[in-house]
């Protein structure tokens, strides 16, 4: 099972993990890392190590981080560099986290593959309501076989 660590500025990770548990429930390997105002990269690394130290050596780990280049990211990459079992992904949002959770227990899946999948998936998580309605209307007009008779 791939361990997932969500980290970001302020309490965003806590909120996201709470939201994911509300929707997803179940048995998850998921931790939120909070980054307070007065803290720095060294504090973040300490928080990360507390989580990593509890994992079996070699466990695959996916960091889901809010912003590329921010402190939560810069701390995570110091732990991830040169480690094939750790991957770091930025721009995390709730649909992406849910998708990651739905795949984390797949024993055949490597963390690098999961990250690649999520990168593609994230594009699909952005929707504009008026476009969705338009698409639905067009689909209904063009695919009459979808209608039951």
């Amino acid at each position: 099972m791939i361990a997932i660590i969500v980290a970001g500025h302020g309490h965003i990770a806590e909120g996201m993990v709470e939201a994911a548990k509300m929707i997803y429930g179940g048995n998850l390997k998921l931790t939120a890392i909070t980054f307070e105002n007065k803290e720095g990269i060294e504090d973040l690394k300490k928080h990360y190590y507390v989580v990593l130290d509890e994992l079996k050596p070699g466990t695959e780990v996916l960091f889901l981080i809010d912003i590329f280049g921010g402190s939560p990211y810069n701390a995570a990459i110091q732990l991830a560099y040169g480690k094939p079992n750790i991957e770091v992904l930025t721009g995390v949002n709730l649909p992406l986290l849910l998708e990651a959770l739905s795949m984390q227990s797949n024993p055949a899946l490597k963390v690098k593959q999961l990250a690649e999948h999520l990168k593609i998936y994230s594009q699909k998580s952005f929707k504009i309501f008026s476009e969705e309605v338009k698409k639905t209307e067009i689909k209904r007009l063009s695919q009459t076989e979808d209608d039951l008779s």
Binding site: E132, V133, K135, T136, E137, R140
Partner: peptide
Amino acid sequence: KILTLSVA
């Protein structure tokens, strides 16, 4: 109806 279908 259309809103329901749009979230399918």
